[in-house]
Design a protein around this nucleic acid. Structure first.
Lengths: 124, 124
DNA sequence: TGTAACTATTTACACGTGTAATCGAAAGCA
DNA sequence: TGCTTTCGATTACACGTGTAAATAGTTACA
């Protein structure tokens, strides 16, 4: 419901926060080693995400701890829908075919997907 | 190979051109009725796409006819990869599960997807 | 209590994007 | 040949984004 539009780089930050919250700016910066971002850059993104109401913070001593304020699943859902629309013209079958073919799936994963297909068929 | 980064709105235009080329600006504008874009807006996007080398044009009398200059499949592949990375952290199985569950697929489509799974398992 | 250290807030800036209007040139009609 | 219509080209402009430095505020140590 409460959807906010998250930019490319902001997803990186959100993913970190979703994975383990609450955490401080320092911790976020720590987990994003390797992204070659200046710490200031990450702070900026935290701020913007707060302004967008994607994150909330709480004072803890002299620092803030951040926690997500929108559910990952909602953002994923929204992003997926708009991606499907934009790139595949809303047709999910080709999208699925593409990702099935282009991913190397373990046989466990394949089994699981097949199960989902079974459910879909039986259900409707 | 030759990848160009195509923006959200530009995808709309590219989709039209990929679907039926070559065509003139007027024709593109015609096919994009309903998007509530001013014709000037569409012209702008055609221009930018030419500058990006996503489209090429050719004079034909006093007007241009446009044609794609990058393959749709390449752009789809690239966009899909980066979406997978950004939103699903590179994990295709959850992505597939999501789209399977959230799409209403016909039983034909389901059958087809199951076939793809079979092929994958019989492992090439 | 003054100062160092660290954190958050403010400011910066160029580029892409969505969204067009306007200008200039060419072509067709009168 | 001059006027109108129709294109393409140029220009506009605000907002988001990637990328970060500078500044201000607060805690902790000496």
């Amino acid at each position: 419901m409460a959807y906010v539009s998250i930019s490319d780089a902001e997803w990186q930050v959100m993913n970190v926060v979703w994975n383990a919250h609450p955490l401080t700016a320092q911790e976020v910066i720590g987990k994003l080693e390797g992204q070659s971002w200046a710490p200031a850059t990450i702070k900026t993104m935290l701020h913007r995400l707060v302004k967008k109401k994607a994150l909330a913070y709480e004072r803890q001593g002299n620092r803030y701890v951040y926690r997500p304020c929108v559910r990952r699943s909602d953002c994923v859902k929204q992003a997926s829908r708009s991606f499907l629309e934009r790139v595949y013209g809303g047709e999910s079958a080709p999208l699925l075919a593409h990702f099935l073919r282009s991913s190397k799936l373990s046989s466990d994963e394949i089994a699981e997907l097949r199960q989902i297909l079974d459910q879909l068929e039986n259900h409707s």
